[in-house]
């Protein structure tokens, strides 16, 4: 792999590290990470809503940071640590605090935008365990939801933050 590193317009094998597993796929360089995760890695929990970076449904974590998988080529994600909604699992294999709060507070209706919101806030709450409502709204502004009007999502995130704080405090 010297300078230049030319890859012709053909499919090429790459390895993606998703949710702790190495997944080998054969793809064209132009294939979007969102499509590769869904079609080649068969992890369909990451949704595609606009393909121009506005709706946030395709948000995943790349090296722990929420990013749009529709605005990255899969070939660029080699060597990165990717996490998707399928990797969001509570300690006992059940819900995480955020999933539990979303369920209890009716923070989802059609559920299409939900995975993007969950992965965003799983990461965000880890670093910001006590966000203000304004901060929650600001981060959530990157995910469009057409069903809920956001109110119950915000309520759920606040509740999850409180649950996480209690957990951490108790540990």
């Amino acid at each position: 792999m010297s300078g230049g590193n030319l890859i012709v317009m053909e499919k090429r094998p790459i390895t993606l590290h998703i949710n702790g597993c190495d997944i080998d796929v054969l793809i064209e360089p132009r294939k979007l990470l969102s499509d590769v995760i869904r079609e080649d890695a068969r992890l369909t929990g990451t949704h595609v809503g606009c393909e121009h970076g506005v709706c946030g449904a395709c948000t995943i974590l790349i090296d722990g940071r929420p990013q749009r998988s529709c605005l990255t080529f899969a070939i660029q994600a080699q060597g990165k640590t990717l996490s998707t909604i399928e990797g969001v699992v509570g300690e006992d294999g059940g819900y995480t605090a955020l999933q539990q709060a979303m369920h209890e507070e009716h923070g989802l209706q059609c559920g299409f935008c939900t995975p993007g919101i969950i992965v965003t806030f799983e990461a965000y709450l880890k670093n910001n365990p006590d966000p203000t409502e304004d901060e929650i709204r600001d981060v959530l502004s990157g995910n469009l939801c057409r069903c809920t009007g956001y109110q119950n999502i915000i309520r759920a995130i606040k509740k999850a933050a409180a649950m996480i704080r209690v957990d951490v405090g108790g540990a």
Binding site: N5, L6, I7, E28, F73, I75
Partner: peptide, 9 residues
């Protein structure tokens, strides 16, 4: 569309 991908180091 198609493109050729280069990742110089």
């Amino acid at each position: 569309g198609k493109f050729t991908y280069h990742a110089p180091e």
